[in-house]
Amino acid sequence: MRIAVTGSSGKLGTVVVRELSAMGYEVIGMDRIGQRGPSFVQVDFTDYGQVIDAFGAVGDRHDGIDAVVHLAAIPAPGIQSDVATFHNNMTASFNVLWAATRLGIRTVVTASSETVQGLPFDVPPPYIPADEAYPPRPESTYSLVKALEERMAVELVRWFPDLSLTALRFSNVMWPEDYAEFPSFDDDAMLRKWNLWSYIDARDGAQAIAKALEKKLPGFNHFLIANADTVMTRPNAELIAEVFPDVPLKGEIGENTTLFSIDKAREMLGYEPQHSWRDHV
């Protein structure tokens, strides 16, 4: 399978390219910036012509794409203005998805975000552990775009019933070198309450993408993707009692088990995190 990875120079994208390549996929990285080479194409995803051209064929690089992993975006709120974030991310995602449908590419995995769950939880979640069952609650322009992208995906699979479109709501992406900071989080439960003390190791993010590519679930599906544990050594019961005392508990919370439920991804994708910050600190 030949896979285009948009946003291939980003924090998650670089790891996804490496891990998918190691699994035997032919990977074509695409981004606005990146190292020139036979497996990279420079693309501005806000320009539809560039996107459809890059997916269709690029000289002697490739003669067509089998699947798309769409990660390209301004990656968080507050990096650029709200208007710039909306215009860039919404336009890029429409262009990528529309180009895929036009070219007959029927397997797409796209990066949604934990932020659609209601981050930074200044308004508490409806229950803990949070899961995909409650409607999106965007609280920023960045998150609003992610929610709109998911809605767009719902309509596209209605128009194209043979399309497999999977949105992965990634938690805060981390590399192993980021883990040295984690023990300091215990000093203040409020430091990481904004995403229920969650994270995703980029390598496990890549695993989730690989599982979605393998499964090719019909229609549109969305999944929370986090690691199996929190960023804290303090127990979940203590954290919840301090920060979210009035939020109902929905099922078991475990000692340090993730408070973003990944049960749906486990059941439908076969996703199972293999990494933990505790192995590095």
Rank of each mutant, 00 (worst) to 15 (best):
D47V: 13
D66N: 02
S171Q: 04
A84C: 13
L259K: 01
D66C: 01
I105E: 00
L20V: 01
P235Y: 09
I74M: 07
S112R: 02
I225E: 06
P38K: 09
G64T: 08
M232W: 09
K216G: 08
H70F: 11
S276G: 13
V43A: 06
E149Y: 06
P129T: 06
D201P: 07
A228L: 07
Q35P: 04
G49D: 14
L224R: 08
D31L: 05
D47R: 04
A73C: 13
F244R: 02
P136R: 10
M152Y: 15
A100T: 03
Y271M: 00
L71G: 11
H70Y: 05
D44T: 14
I74F: 10
G64W: 09
T230M: 04
I128Q: 13
M23C: 09
T115D: 06
P135L: 03
V5T: 05
N95P: 08
T14M: 12
A130V: 15
G59K: 15
R192D: 00
L217N: 02
N236L: 08
L103F: 01
A206E: 05
A76C: 01
P38M: 12
R234W: 10
M1P: 10
G270F: 00
T6Y: 03
R61L: 14
Y48S: 01
Q207F: 04
T258R: 09
Q35S: 13
S198A: 14
P235K: 13
Y199A: 02
L119H: 14
D187T: 13
D263F: 05
K211L: 11
D44C: 09
G34A: 06
V145R: 06
M268W: 12
R137A: 14
R32C: 06
V123Y: 12
I65T: 00
I65E: 08
T115W: 09
P138D: 04
T46K: 02
P138K: 02
S164V: 01
D204R: 03
Y271G: 03
G78Q: 05
N88G: 05
L144W: 09
R106M: 03
P38E: 07
N236V: 06
E155R: 10
E155S: 15
D60Q: 15
K211I: 00
P235I: 11
N89W: 14
Y25M: 06
A210F: 00
H222M: 12
L239K: 10
M174W: 14
D201S: 11
W159Q: 14
F55W: 00
H222Q: 07
K193R: 08
P218N: 12
A167H: 11
L224P: 10
K193V: 07
V247N: 05
K215Q: 15
Q42K: 14
L165V: 05
M232Y: 12
N195M: 07
A202M: 05
D122I: 14
G205V: 00
G29R: 01
A167W: 10
A92M: 02
G64C: 07
G118N: 03
E114F: 14
V247G: 09
S198K: 01
N95H: 13
M174R: 14
G205A: 10
F220L: 01
R203F: 03
T257C: 10
P248Y: 07
I128A: 11
